[in-house]
Every structure is written in structure tokens, then in C-alpha cells.
Design a protein around this nucleic acid. Structure first.
Length: 876
RNA sequence: GGGCGCUUAGCUCAGUUGGUUUAGAGCACCUCGUUUACACCGAGGGGGUCGGGGGUUCGAAUCCCUCAGCGCCCACCA
């Protein structure tokens, strides 16, 4: 079989992905095997693959592929999210370009545009995931607005409403006047911005005292319904209970007192505008104040704004400043820096607004989510530090505002009838009609009498059902799929959506199925650039994911991402990581070429060093496998890769292959090659979750490999018993060989020149040349004493003394110097251990095993010192 | 303002309940090397006393206190 000199990732990745798909290797249906399920965090349907997706999905693929190899029924459910706000914003923007205003078209017309947009740009991200090698069961692909998914969301609303958990309330919400929608607290960014603090004069009724009031929002005076001072403020005690006159509109408002007001800030006087400030709203409720809403939906002033009606709030701010100044009501204006809330999506300044919204009561349904994560650890977080964040949020949870003033999404299944305050919750109009007409009122309603609520549900209200709804567990709670696949095993996601999504899925899991949605949550960090900056379009520091795959190959990119991504840690991405991954693929490819190049000599018997080396690597492999399995179980994925990387690069390639490598013109014995290939195949298996394409390709190029089955579905190596002492002994061998290499380097002796190595028999040591030879893996080693040679250089390893005879060019002084240095080191070491043992407290208090270890150290060090001294004496 | 966390080689990080030699890894760096798998390589090497200070202990990178610096989350003061 001819192996190409270079690994062609483009061709080979295409080949194997279509092979896997054609043979349905990622397909899962319920069977009698243990299920292993992951639901993908559904990316935005019209989004494009970025580094964060790559990291996240590579991790999921690694977990899924390993589970598959462990013989589990692995099921990775892919899908996309409709992402109401983001998608609707894009569609609106796109329509604007075409000269269409969203407000000018009907809901149905708008939805048609949105679907066209989705059909055109949607789902591309899933194809990109295939390029990355993701082994999802693509037949299961879901979209949150698919009919069945849609119905599940509505059904969930119905269930919760029936339980009395959903209510309609008046709330101060964050209003985005540009998108004309509410945004959740989490979607508002507070940014320090330059602003002004206006000091405005308010007159007091029946008094000649003026009040100075500081505000950042003079345009809201039309909504003022009180003036508030601190009850302990001596400056204002006398005027409490009187009325103040609001400038320009000349309305009388009461002067009230409340501890909320800060004596130090501004003038200690606060104008209260309950309709437009959350704190004022709370004051309004407390003091039973009137609420005057002065804004229209787009934050222009309404009729209460008098002559400013129809003008934008910021325009009014400027104009009112002028009017106040003209009337001598503006005392001063100061520069002022404060936090201004802006919509994450449109960047519009958020307007606090009183609005009718749908809410989900959270307090009643969070208990299992708290207990099962924090008390019982039925759900584990990796890293566990995120439990504190989770805990804090759940223990301070507020009711969830689930309605959004958008069209793209699941329309709220509430149908108003009669005087428009009565409503029913139903899957559709038909059901709704049936429901009301069943009432005892006797009144018969027609379809035309019903109006569905115009709002849609928060996107997260569909996402929080995802692990259940993808298996249709909301509509059909007893179906075979949900019973088999739920609860799922792992969730891989970012800590930034721990509240939005993770916590809510846990809540919904217990609420709808009385069972956790997943057992383990792996939190990935944020992918940043080398300078720790977030990847962003503006900075242009975000690499094109697909280009990276094309340039380096999917395997290399996957390895690059995994090399430095401990759970929860941010990943400082740099292309050099992909290069490192590519170097590794090259290394493996070349190992294949090397092994394939070795011809077999059928008659040759296995040399002892081959036997020893293979035995050693087998032990080393199993020793590492043990560690790998352990690290997999604790989700230390980058540690797993690192151990495999070192095992294969250093132990397999640099040591094992170098020992087995036949000499010039030589061939390898059959036994060695057969055993070697077995080990090589095992290497491929542990690497397969990380580098699926390369390993699959190599696997099918191994000579003598009888296995025509794909690696993807081959069994994970089972842990065999191994002898740890073999592994340890080999470390000694490595040391001996390293010493010889050092010696060659020091003396500038080429590798072509062979050296004789001798071993000094020592009665106190294991005095068996065979054992020493075994340890040294060097069959030229002979037993001798230094007296037989004029000059030697010696080294001591694990209390065995070895030496190499010297012929000429021997620098006695430097040799002695070298030994003296070693002597000093050992003496220093000895002294530190001796001091420890001299300390009576240590000897008396430390456990016996620890003391014993220290004593042994002394013995070893003393012996070594003796040997070195002897060598020095001999040279002098 | 409230809460959580971090500070170990040039960089990114390990370091499990305090005790395997005088702290590890990968990358980077330096030196040497074209021996027919690989220069996308090989061999070798330098480099940290674990942010500062104090304490507990026979013993601390590991526990406690304190100072300094950094980061994240929540709330957001007219």
C-alpha cells in the first residue's frame, strides 16, 4: 500500500464524513444499550460559525465520540434557535433597506418575510458543524419554530397557566424605543456616559422659598407627581406637606418625605416621576402617587408633553433647557458622568416604562433546582465554582417577564374576548372558542370576537424546554423517546448563559418531568485573542472558522482548541495553536509511514530490547489510559489531550519506534511488528475523539490490520492490568540513554560512532547483569571494573554506576569539576533531609511512613555521595 | 454598593484531603544536529521559591489573617 508523503486533509475529511453519514454511524434509535445523550445548545438559526461554536461543539463531539466508542447508544441532537430579538432585528433592518417599514405591514406579512429570511440564511451553521466533524444525528435536527416544537412551547404555557404560575401584571420594564419592545434586565448594558445634571427651580405654593432640584432628565417634568425630600433633612422640614409647582406645566404636586432620598446627592430634593423611573415607581406605590406616562412607544412625548408633543425625548431635553433658561428656572447645568442603560441589540437608550406583561412566578418552582445542584449534586458543574453564581441567582430570583413585543417567535396563546379583559389560554383560536363557549354564560362567541395577544414569548421560554421538547416530552410525556433519552448526560455551554438558559432548563426539567435535564454541565470559557480581548467584528480579531478548517484541517483546529482550554477558563486563541495541532497530525502521519516501511523478516526472532520496549509501552499505555479515563470522567478534556499527545509524541514515537527501528538494511521480526500495530491502533482509538478524520484514515492504512470496520464505532481500549514497575524501570533506562547522549554531545561524538558502556558490579546493589541490562535496554552493556581501563567517564543512576572508557582528548579537570558539582548537589540535599530528621518534633509528629521515606532518602544520598567521591579520588 | 473568584517559569495553565527527592506541563527561548518517518524534525539546555507581609503547624504553593493588583456577576442613586 502506497502512503502519500503528505496528509491531504481536505480530501480525506470529505471522504470520511460522507462515509460516516452514508453508513448511518451517528444515527441513534432507542435500544437496550445505555443511552448517552447531548442536546446541542441551539445556535441562532441565521448565525455563522465562530470560534465560540467551534470550541463548544468540539467538546461535545469529543464526549459523544468517546461515549459511542464505550459502547453506549450515543445521541447528539442538533438544532437551531429562532432567536427572536436578533433575527427580528435583522429582518427589520433588511426590510428597511427595501423601503418597507415593519409598522406598515401586517403581522402575517412580516412573518412571511422572516420565514423567507430564515429559509435563505438559516441552517448554514449546521453544515459548518459537519465540516468540523461533529457526529450529530442529523435526522433529528430541530428548529425551535418547527410545528412540533411550537406546539410544545404553547402546551408548556398552558400547563403553567393552569397551575396559576403565569399572570399578567403591570411592571416597570426596560423599553427599547427603537425596537419598540421590552428587553430583559439581562439584555441592558449600562455604560458610563457623559451627561448633564440640570438644577431646576421649583416654586412652592403659598411660599416665597424656591426649591432647587437636580435631575438628569428635565424632559420628564411633565410626569412629575411629587417632590420628595429626606425626613431628616433640616433644610426642608418645614415644607413637607406643602405643594410644589412643576415648571412649564404649572401643575401642583405634593412635597413628600422618604428615607430613600440621599441627603448628600444634588440638592437633597428629588422630583418623582413614577411612570419613568423604577425607583420613582416604587415611591409612587408606597406614597400612593398619581402616575403620568408622558411618552409614546417610540419615546416621543404624548399629549402630556404639551407643546412638545410628538418630539423625541432628547430633542425635548435640549429645547426644554432653553425654555427653562428663558424663564429663569434653570439654575445651573453641570457635567455629570453616570451609567446609561442601552439596549444590547439596538443600542437605544432604555426607557423605563410601565407596561402590561406576562410573567412566570419563579419562587414556587425553583426549590428542586436549588436542592439538586447545591445539596445533592445530582447535577454537577464543571468547574464547580459556577455553583456560587447559580446559587446567588436562584436565591434572589425575580418573576420572569416572558412576553416580548415582537412578531418572530411563539405567539402568546392568550385569546381576549368580551370587553377585552377576559381571556382564555388555548393552543389556537378554534380551541379557544370551544373553551369560552363551554362556559355557563350561555353567550355564543364567534371567531371574530377573539383577539390573540400580539406579543410573542421570550426566546428562552422555548429554549428552557429544549432537552424535553426535542424528544416531544411536553406534548407526549410518555413517549418512548423521552423515556429513553431523558435525562440527558452532558450539557456544554458558556457561563454567560447560566441564568438565561442553564438554570431555567433545570427548573423546567423538574417542573415538567420531575427529573433533571442533564447530569453534568461543562462550562467553556470565552474565546479571546492573544491579548485577552473578546473576539469581535469591530476589532477584526475573530478568525474565519471555516478558513481555519480549510487551511489547517478540522483535526488540527480541534486539537489547537483543546490544547489550552481547561473548563471555565477563557481560551486565548492564536493560530499558532492550530499549527501545533497540524504538527501533531504530521507526526502521526509520519509514524504511519515509518511503520509501513518496515519489512518483516519471517524467520527473525524477537530481539530482547524489542520485547522489553513493547512490554514497557504496553504498560505505559495502560497507565496513561487509566489517567485518561479518570480525566474524562472529571471533564478535564485538555488534560486528556495533553497526556495522549505526550504519550504518542514522546513515548511512542521518540522512544518505542526508535528502539524498534530496524538498522540500516535490516528488517523487523514478525512478532514485534504485530504487537506494534496493535499498540498503534490503540493510540488511534484514544485520539479518535479529538482527531476523528486523521485517525480514521490512518486506521485503514495500517498494514496487516484485519479490521475493515470504521474506527468511529470501534470499541474504546479496555484497561488492562499492567506492571507499574516496568514503567518506572524504563525511566531509569531513559536516564542512562540520556546520559550517553549528553556524553556524546559534550565530547562531540557522532551517533555513528558506537560506544562501549560498562557496569560496575556492586555487592550492595542488585548485582545481576541481566537485570541491569534489562533496565538499560542496551545489550552491549558489560560488567567490568574501571581498573581495566586507563581513563573512564562514569555516571551514577539510581545507585548503579556506569562508565564509558575514554580513548583520547580526555579533560580530567572538567570531568572532576562535573563530578564535584554533582557532589555538592547531593550533599546539599542530604543536609536538608538530615536537618529534617534532626528535628525531634518532626520525628515525633509526622506519620511513620513519611519519616521512613526521609530515612530512605538519606541512605540513597549517602550511597550516591560515596560513589561520586570514589570516582573523584580515582581521577585525581 | 452587594456577591464570587483569581495572582505559580517569558506566555497559557496543572498542582487532588498540607508531607514522593531542592515545585510540573505545553508553547516560547538558547545550543547542537540534514543518522533514508517527520526541520510541521531530533538531541540537549536555561528559566519560577509559588503577588507582598504576618500567623497556624514538626512541615504550607496548599489552611487562617492582612495589604496590593486583576477579573467576573448582580444592583445602579435622581
Amino acid at each position: 500500500m502506497l502512503i502519500p508523503p503528505k496528509y491531504n486533509h481536505i480530501e480525506i475529511e470529505k471522504k470520511w464524513y460522507s462515509y460516516w453519514m452514508k453508513n448511518n454511524l451517528f444515527k441513534s434509535i432507542p435500544n437496550d444499550k445505555e443511552p448517552f445523550t447531548i442536546v446541542i445548545p441551539p445556535p441562532n438559526v441565521t448565525g455563522l460559525l465562530h470560534m465560540g461554536h467551534m470550541l463548544n461543539n468540539t467538546l461535545q463531539d469529543i464526549l459523544v465520540r468517546r461515549a459511542r466508542m464505550l459502547g453506549k447508544n450515543a445521541c447528539w441532537v442538533p438544532g437551531t434557535d429562532h432567536a427572536s430579538i436578533a433575527t427580528e432585528a435583522k429582518v427589520v433592518e433588511n426590510l428597511k433597506k427595501k423601503g418597507i417599514n415593519k409598522t406598515d405591514i401586517s403581522r402575517d406579512e412580516f412573518l412571511k418575510h422572516a420565514w423567507d429570511w430564515t429559509d435563505k440564511y438559516g441552517g448554514g451553521i449546521l453544515d459548518q458543524l459537519k465540516k468540523l466533524g461533529c457526529s450529530c444525528d442529523w435526522d433529528r435536527t430541530k428548529f425551535t419554530l418547527d410545528d412540533d416544537m411550537y406546539e410544545s412551547v404553547i402546551k408548556a404555557f398552558e400547563i403553567l397557566h393552569k397551575k396559576g404560575l403565569i399572570y399578567r401584571g403591570h411592571r416597570m420594564i426596560n423599553w427599547d424605543p427603537e425596537a419598540k419592545t421590552t428587553v430583559s434586565d439581562e439584555e441592558v448594558n449600562y455604560i458610563e456616559e457623559d451627561s448633564s445634571l440640570y438644577y431646576i427651580r421649583y416654586l412652592i405654593e403659598d411660599s416665597n422659598i424656591d426649591l432647587e432640584i437636580a435631575t438628569t432628565r428635565p424632559e420628564t417634568i411633565f410626569g412629575d407627581t411629587a417632590i420628595c425630600v429626606n425626613p431628616n433633612d433640616d433644610r426642608y422640614k418645614e415644607i413637607i406637606g406643602k405643594n410644589a409647582i412643576v415648571p412649564i406645566c404649572n401643575r401642583k404636586v405634593p412635597i413628600i418625605s422618604d428615607n430613600y432620598v440621599d441627603l448628600e446627592f444634588g440638592t437633597g430634593c428629588l422630583k418623582v416621576t413614577p411612570a419613568h423611573d423604577i425607583n420613582d415607581y416604587n415611591l409612587g406605590i408606597k406614597h400612593n402617587l398619581e402616575t403620568i406616562d408622558i411618552f409614546n412607544e417610540d419615546a416621543t412625548l404624548n399629549i402630556h408633553g404639551m407643546h412638545y408633543m410628538g418630539k423625541d425625548r432628547f430633542t425635548v431635553r435640549n429645547e426644554i433647557e432653553a425654555e427653562l433658561k428663558k424663564n429663569n428656572l434653570l439654575i445651573k447645568k453641570e457635567n455629570y458622568i453616570h451609567n446609561i442603560g442601552r439596549s444590547e441589540r439596538t443600542n437605544a437608550v432604555i426607557e423605563p416604562r410601565l407596561s402590561k406583561q406576562w410573567f412566570l412566578k419563579m419562587n414556587d418552582i425553583t426549590k428542586p433546582a436549588i436542592d439538586n445542584v447545591l445539596k445533592d449534586e445530582n447535577i454537577k458543574f464543571f468547574p464547580s465554582k459556577f455553583k456560587s453564581t447559580y446559587k446567588y441567582w436562584l436565591e434572589n430570583i425575580k418573576d420572569w417577564n416572558i412576553s416580548r413585543q415582537l412578531s418572530w417567535g411563539h405567539q402568546i396563546p392568550v385569546f381576549y374576548y368580551g370587553d377585552n379583559e377576559d381571556y382564555v389560554v388555548a393552543m389556537n383560536k378554534e380551541h379557544a372558542l370551544k373553551k369560552i363557549n363551554n362556559f355557563e354564560t350561555g353567550k355564543k362567541y364567534k371567531e371574530a370576537d377573539l383577539t390573540q395577544d400580539n406579543d410573542v414569548l421570550d426566546t428562552w421560554f422555548s429554549s428552557w424546554l429544549w432537552p424535553i421538547s426535542v424528544f416531544d416530552g411536553i406534548r407526549n410525556p410518555d413517549n418512548d423517546e423521552i423515556k429513553y433519552y431523558y435525562p440527558t448526560q452532558d450539557l456544554v455551554t458558556g457561563p454567560d448563559i447560566i441564568f438565561f438558559w442553564v438554570a431555567r432548563m433545570i427548573i423546567s426539567g423538574y417542573e415538567f418531568r420531575n427529573e433533571k435535564p442533564f447530569s453534568n454541565v461543562y462550562f467553556t470559557g470565552i474565546v479571546r485573542d492573544k491579548l485577552r480581548r473578546k473576539m469581535s467584528k469591530q476589532l477584526g480579531n475573530s478568525p474565519d472558522a471555516i478558513k481555519l478548517i480549510e487551511e489547517y484541517g478540522a483535526d488540527s483546529v480541534r486539537v489547537g482548541l483543546m490544547l489550552s482550554s481547561a473548563a471555565g477558563n477563557d481560551l486565548l486563541f492564536d493560530e499558532s495553536l492550530c499549527q501545533q495541532g497540524k504538527n501533531f497530525t504530521n507526526k502521526l502521519w509520519n509514524a504511519l509511514k515509518l511503520i509501513n516501511g518496515w519489512e518483516i523478516d519471517q524467520k527473525k526472532t524477537q530481539p530482547i530490547e524489542n520485547k522489553l520496549a513493547l512490554e514497557w509501552y504496553n504498560s505505559k499505555f495502560n497507565n496513561t489510559l487509566e489517567l485518561i479515563d479518570k480525566n474524562f470522567d472529571s471533564y478535564r478534556i485538555s488534560d486528556v489531550l495533553m497526556s495522549s499527545y505526550k504519550l504518542i509524541w514522546d513515548d511512542f514515537c521518540s522512544w518505542l519506534l526508535e528502539i524498534l527501528k530496524p538498522g540500516y538494511g535490516d528488517k523487523i521480526d514478525k512478532k514485534s511488528k504485530t504487537e506494534l500495530i496493535e499498540l498503534f491502533e490503540k493510540n488511534l482509538k484514544i485520539l479518535h475523539p479529538f482527531m476523528p478524520f486523521l485517525t480514521e484514515e490512518i486506521y485503514h492504512n495500517i498494514p496487516n490490520s484485519n479490521n475493515s470496520n470504521p474506527l468511529t464505532t470501534s470499541p474504546w481500549p479496555s484497561k488492562e492490568n499492567y506492571n507499574i514497575s516496568i514503567v518506572e524501570e524504563f525511566e531509569t533506562s531513559k536516564e542512562i540513554i540520556s546520559q550517553i547522549r549528553n556524553y556524546r554531545k559534550e565530547k562531540n561524538i557522532s551517533f555513528k560512532t558506537s560506544l562501549d558502556l560498562y557496569f560496575i558490579p556492586n555487592d550492595n546493589q542488585l548485582n545481576n547483569i541481566e537485570i541491569i541490562k534489562k533496565i538499560a535496554i542496551i545489550d552491549k552493556l558489560e560488567e567490568s571494573t574501571k581498573e581495566n581501563f586507563d581513563m573512564v567517564t562514569s555516571f551514577i543512576i539510581k545507585n548503579f554506576e556506569f562508565f564509558i572508557p575514554l580513548e583520547d582528548g580526555f579533560d580530567k579537570a572538567s570531568e572532576i569539576n562535573k563530578l564535584k558539582k554533582e557532589l555538592d548537589y547531593n550533599k546539599g540535599f542530604l543536609k536538608s533531609v538530615e536537618n529534617k530528621l534532626k528535628n525531634e518534633n518532626f520525628v515525633n509528629n509526622a506519620p511513620d511512613t513519611v519519616v521512613e521515606k526521609e530515612k530512605q532518602k538519606i541512605k540513597d544520598a549517602e550511597q550516591k555521595i560515596e560513589s561520586i567521591k570514589k570516582s573523584i579520588a580515582e581521577l585525581s
